[in-house]
């Protein structure tokens, strides 16, 4: 994954960059399987590697294939990135180890989901149960965001063909 990202930074051919970002998504999906997120891996493989690559190719086909060499100074962004990264690494020193069952994240609401979700919802897949039932409001909000984004894209990109067609019909 690190290699893919470095290539994305280096390359100027946007087609290759988009393909590499698809590969990056696929690698992320395999990582999600390793950490037990089968549902998430499924989604990432279908969305990240499939749909978003197709969308980016669609955008490339109506814009341009090549990136012009960066004229900007790269020194300032590099400095910002290094400083931020160092601060974040310092922050991780307090984090629990990978896979630690005693980590605070596993202590709050997760035990209830794990123990009671089958009893309360009769759905064996906890992710589905939590998604649709315990956090129903959350999911409703997300669906509304997707709805809004879809409407936005239609408004931005679809030509006002409807009106023109109606004018044609009037003329005919």
């Amino acid at each position: 994954m690190v290699l893919t990202v470095l290539l994305i930074i280096r390359l100027h051919n946007l087609f290759a960059v988009v393909m590499l970002s698809g590969i990056y998504s696929l690698l992320a999906a395999t990582f999600f399987v390793v950490v037990d997120g089968v549902d998430v891996a499924f989604t990432e493989a279908a969305v990240g590697a499939g749909i978003s690559t197709v969308l980016m190719l669609g955008a490339l086909s109506v814009t341009t294939q090549r990136e012009k060499a960066a004229a900007k100074s790269t020194l300032v962004p590099l400095a910002v990135v290094v400083v931020t990264g160092a601060a974040l690494v310092y922050g991780t020193l307090d984090m629990p180890n990978y896979g630690d069952p005693e980590a605070p994240i596993h202590k709050h609401v997760a035990p209830r989901y794990i123990e009671d979700s089958l009893k309360e919802t009769s759905v064996p897949n906890m992710v589905t149960a939590v998604l649709a039932s315990y956090r129903g409001y959350d999911t409703l909000g997300e669906v509304t965001v997707i709805f809004t984004a879809g409407i936005g894209v239609i408004l931005l990109l679809v030509r006002v063909g409807g009106r023109r067609r109606r004018e044609d019909e009037d003329a005919a």
């Binding site: 990240g48 749909i51 609401v109 992710v127 997300e142 965001v145």
Partner: peptide, 28 residues
């Protein structure tokens, strides 16, 4: 494993692609 992060990220991925599409539309 803890199901809660899975739920949050599952929705975030799909919302992510929707917003990505929005951004690409603006770029076009």
């Amino acid at each position: 494993s803890n199901p809660l992060p899975h739920v949050l990220i599952l929705t975030a991925i799909v919302v992510g692609v929707a917003t990505l599409a929005m951004g690409l539309a603006i770029i076009v």
